[in-house]
Amino acid sequence: MTYLQPRSIPGQRARRIAISVILGAAAIAGGIQWLSPWFFPGVFLSVARPFWQAEFSIRSGAVRPPAQILAENEELKRRLAELETRMASSSAGELIQENTELKAEFGRASTTPKLLAAVLARPPIAPYDELVIDVGKDKGAGSTTLVYAANNVIVGRVRESSAHASKVILFTSPGQTYPVLIGPTHIPATAVGQGGGQYRADVAHGAAVHEGDPVSDSSLSGGALGSVVYVSTDPSSPFDTVFIAPSVNPYQLRWVFLDVRF
């Protein structure tokens, strides 16, 4: 006599339960992400930050012997003092001093130093031309905070901040724009991010823009943004396309400065 084995009811039931749990968790996560888009990024950033800071400390040489670090510190101080002396006695130093005094007379002197932040993750580890820094809302970083590299080179702005970390979107990110001045004649233009750490700008056809021309920030600080690497000319177009390489390589940034006044 043959008879059919009963179906594996417990196994199928367990499978249905597992699928229900998975779909339920996905629905809950989707609902939370819809209602509060910064919830999960904040949670995961707070989990990842200690690991990134530990990696940053190791790369910065925190595990080196103290004597070596002290010796390097003394050498850097000596070189800084030497450079400051040289700058003060040069014509460039006199121009900087005059610029600072003029700004103070017109009430535009900066009395707030920029905030230093360590770059915890940068491209290509952090994709989409973004940086993750270790300064968050606790230090005053907000969605309009501008971010600079060394020598007052503007690189981007804060996109979102959690309590102790922030994501910075670089101006070289595709679609990002920033007003600039090109060349010694300060031709105004809008630099558009191209991705991969590059900018593009359109200027009037026949404008006096040449390869190697400096490109500066159009704000009062007038910091450098980069230089012109190529000018594409089309006689049938009213515009020439200028390709700009930044002064700093955003993929190698380890420290940035935040202007937390804005």
Partner: peptide
């Protein structure tokens, strides 16, 4: 039922992506 991979992908987006709301 190795859902850890999907969770890892979600965590990766939370850390480095999820920028759709800003239109970028």
């Amino acid at each position: 039922y190795f859902m850890e991979l999907t969770a890892a992908g979600f965590a990766y987006d939370a850390l480095f992506g999820m920028n759709a709301s800003s239109g970028n």
